[in-house]
Simulated scan of single mutants.
Amino acid sequence: MSYQPQTLFDLSNRVAVVTGGGTGIGLSIAQGLAASGAKVYITGRRLDVLKKTADSWNEQHSVGKIVPLQMDVTDKESITSGKKLIEEQEGKIHVLVNNAGQVGPTSPFLGDPSAPQLKDAETLGQALFDNETFGQWADLYRINTFSLFFVTTAFLGLLDKGSQDTPGYTSVVINVTSISGVIKVAQEHFAYNSAKAAASHLTKMLATEFALKKVKVRVNAIAPGVYASEMTHDYISPEQVDKVGKGLQPVPAARAGTGQEMAGTAIYLASLSGGYMNGQEIIIDGGYTSVNPSVV
């Protein structure tokens, strides 16, 4: 067995799907998988963004390939259409990255000690009650949690076929969750944090049920800390890190995570190197959860 990095992390002849792959964290992961040799379908609602991203990569790189695919992860018909197209083109996939997500409703006054909404329990409760709606919460859970279940189950058969390629290799689902799902402060958005916590637990349930049902598909999660994304306007200076993180204590690394760090973690999980990893959530946060109250 070779211990050369070129072998350990080689994704040649692998087919991957990355939802929300046109920008931010999803793009970093897609580029990392492609750079390791994979053919990567990036999905999203905005086809123009996906095409621009794919064209840019394919013009500049001879390794791997990025293919744009318009797909709405909150719509079963759209998911089915995306699956059908990939099934016709590839017959199987090896990696599914459920990355698509959004922030949802926020309550900024939670982070302002002088805010009038914090006057007393009645005032705080009413402010939170009035500031958000059932519809906003439902919309957020639809993309941040529900989509993981429906996209994964739709592509499960194709993932299982991908597991039959190479002895010792097992296809993998990688859910991009967040430290917001394990941190015990709301960070000014109860909905987002609870939806990410649900996504973390869903990851473990899927991994367990597939294993018990003898389905050869692993399910893991990556929980990023503060990383540049569309949600954070694609760049975070060291001075902005703690404003974005909204923790009780500063991020020990004193910087945001990099695209390379995100991609490297995904490559590990997707390659032969990570083949023994199943049902786990890898937290990459610069030490954030080590100094802030969390469930880990």
Rank of each mutant, 00 (worst) to 15 (best):
I79Y: 05
S271I: 13
T145F: 15
G64H: 04
K84V: 14
G247L: 02
V49Q: 12
I93Y: 06
L96W: 03
T258N: 11
V241I: 09
S171V: 06
G245R: 04
S229K: 05
V176D: 02
Y192E: 08
R45C: 10
N278W: 09
A270N: 07
P167M: 01
I222H: 09
G26A: 11
V226S: 07
K83I: 07
E132K: 15
A198C: 03
N99P: 15
M1Q: 15
T23V: 13
A121H: 15
Y276V: 15
G225R: 15
Y276M: 14
K184Y: 02
T53V: 10
A54S: 03
V40F: 05
G44D: 09
K76A: 12
A263W: 02
Q89K: 14
S178Q: 01
F210H: 00
L202D: 04
S107Y: 05
G82I: 02
G157N: 05
P113W: 05
E281N: 04
G257C: 10
S294E: 03
R142F: 13
S163I: 04
Y227P: 03
H189C: 10
A127Q: 04
I183N: 04
A138M: 10
S107T: 09
G287E: 02
D55W: 02
E209T: 13
Y276C: 14
K184G: 06
S290V: 13
Q136I: 02
G32F: 04
V176S: 02
P167H: 01
Y3V: 15
M277V: 15
S62L: 08
A207M: 07
V185M: 04
R142G: 07
V18K: 04
K214V: 10
G257R: 01
A121G: 11
P293N: 08
N99Q: 01
P293V: 03
D112A: 06
F150E: 11
L159W: 00
E77Y: 15
S229C: 11
R14G: 00
T166Y: 06
G32I: 10
Y227S: 14
V40Y: 03
T19N: 09
S290R: 09
A254Y: 10
G257I: 10
N220D: 13
V244E: 13
S273W: 01
V15C: 06
K161A: 08
V291T: 14
Q164L: 11
A30G: 08
G64A: 09
T208R: 12
A199V: 05
V63N: 07
M262H: 09
V296F: 11
G37C: 00
E132D: 14
F146H: 14
S171I: 06
G274F: 07
L212Y: 11
V296A: 05
L47S: 13
L140P: 01
F146A: 12
P113Y: 08
S229E: 15
I79C: 04
V95M: 03
I29D: 06
T7S: 09
V251A: 04
P293K: 02
A263V: 07
V185S: 11
I79D: 03
T53S: 12
P108G: 08
T152W: 01
N220F: 08
V215G: 00
D75H: 06
M205Q: 12
S200Q: 08
V40C: 15
L47W: 06
P293R: 07
V95H: 02
L272S: 13
G24D: 14
S294R: 01
L159P: 00
A223N: 12
K214R: 06
F129D: 12
D130G: 07
D234V: 09
N220W: 09
